[in-house]
Simulated assay, not measured.
Amino acid sequence: MNPDNRIKLRHLNCFLEVARQGSIQRAADALAISQPAVSKTLRELEDSLDSKLFERGRQGVTLTDAGNAFLHVAGPSMQALRRGIQSLRTDEYKAGELRLGALSSVETQLVPKMIHLLHSRHLGLRISVLGGPAAYLLGLLRSAELDLVVGRLSDSPHLAGLHFEHLYGDALKVVVHTQHPLLGCPPELLPGRLSDYPMVLPLPDTTIRQHADSLLLQSGAGLPATCLETLSNTLARSYTLCAHAVWIAPRDAIHGDLEQGNLKSLELDGHTLGGSVGVCSNPATSQSLPAQWCLDALRELTGNSTPT
C-alpha cells in the first residue's frame, strides 16, 4: 500500500496540535481525546512517513528536523483544505467575475490594493482589468462589457448617462530622477527651463492631458520639442529614471517612488492642479454582487463610507 494512502486527516490534525502545544497531554485536552490515543496516532503517522517527528522529554515534546520539514507541508495543506471547505459551505467559489476598467491614474496604488482586499475576502472571485483612455473604457461600460470604471473621470465629456462617484481629489505632480539638473534650479527660473528637457505627458485628447496642458499654461512653461506621450506608467517611469526627462504624472503613479526616494518633485506654480478620482457605473444595467463588493472596497480604501 502507498504510505500516503495511510495518512488521514486525523493524523495531520493530531500532529499539528502536538506541534502547537509542545505537549501530548495538552494536545489531547485540546482535541478532546485521551493521551494514549494521541500517542497512538503519532506512532501511526511516524510509521507511515518512516520518520521520527518528535523528541519526547520530561518537559514535553519538540520537533525533530524531519518534524519541522513535515510541519512546513502539513500546516499550509490543512489551511488550504479548510479554506476550500469554507468556500463550499458559503458558496464563495460561486463569487463570479468582476470586469473592471482602470485608468492609468489609479493602476499603481489604488487598484492593486483594492484587488488584494477583494481576493482576501472572496476566494472564488475572478477579476479582469482592462486599461486604456477614458473614452474607450466608458464606452465599454455603457455597452455593459465592463461592470465599473475607476480613475480620474470627473471632467470627462463621456460621462453622459453614467453615474460617477467621487472617491478622492487627485493632483498632478512634476517629477524627475534624483540627479536631474533641474533640482537645483531657482523656482523663478524653473518654468523657462522645463522645455530644455524631454517631457513625458499623457496621450492627447485625454482628460489627464488637459490637466497637464493647463498646468504648463498656468505656470508659464512651454511644451518641449521632445515629448513622450503615453498612458503607460511603467514606460513613463522607466524613461524618466534613465533620461533627463520631466514627467507630469498622477499622484498614484509616483507615490511609491517619491516615498522611496527614486523620484523627486519639482515645485511648479499650479502644481496642485488636479481632478477627481472616482468610480463610474452604468445605472441602466443591474449591478452584480462582485461590482458591489468592489464599490465597498474602494470606499473603504479611500475613506468614503457612504456613496456620494
Rank of each mutant, 00 (worst) to 15 (best):
R152K: 05
A135F: 07
R56F: 08
L263S: 05
H122E: 10
Q86L: 09
G184Y: 14
L263E: 07
Y93I: 08
I254A: 15
L194A: 00
S195V: 10
H180E: 11
V111C: 09
P36K: 13
K40F: 11
K264I: 00
R58H: 13
D257Y: 11
K113W: 13
P133H: 08
L118G: 11
Q109V: 11
L263H: 07
V277Q: 02
L182N: 10
E107R: 09
A37M: 06
T206R: 03
H158W: 15
S276W: 02
I248N: 09
R6C: 03
Q21G: 07
V106N: 01
L98Y: 07
Q59W: 13
Q179Y: 13
Q35K: 14
D170M: 14
G96R: 05
V175K: 02
C14G: 09
Y197I: 01
I254K: 05
M1C: 00
Q109K: 06
L125N: 08
S156F: 09
T306M: 11
G101K: 02
Q25P: 00
K94Y: 04
A134L: 06
L266I: 03
S39N: 11
G222Q: 08
S238W: 03
V129A: 07
L231H: 04
T108G: 00
S143M: 09
G192T: 04
G60Y: 03
K52T: 15
L194F: 01
L298H: 03
R83C: 03
R142W: 03
Y239R: 08
D47A: 13
G303C: 06
P191H: 06
C14P: 07
N233V: 12
A225M: 04
G124A: 15
E92T: 01
H271C: 02
R56M: 04
L81E: 10
Y239M: 07
L42G: 04
V150R: 05
V175G: 04
V279P: 01
E17H: 08
N304F: 03
Q79C: 06
H158D: 15
A243P: 00
C294E: 04
D50H: 12
N13T: 12
R58A: 14
M1Q: 02
Y93G: 03
A27I: 14
V73S: 08
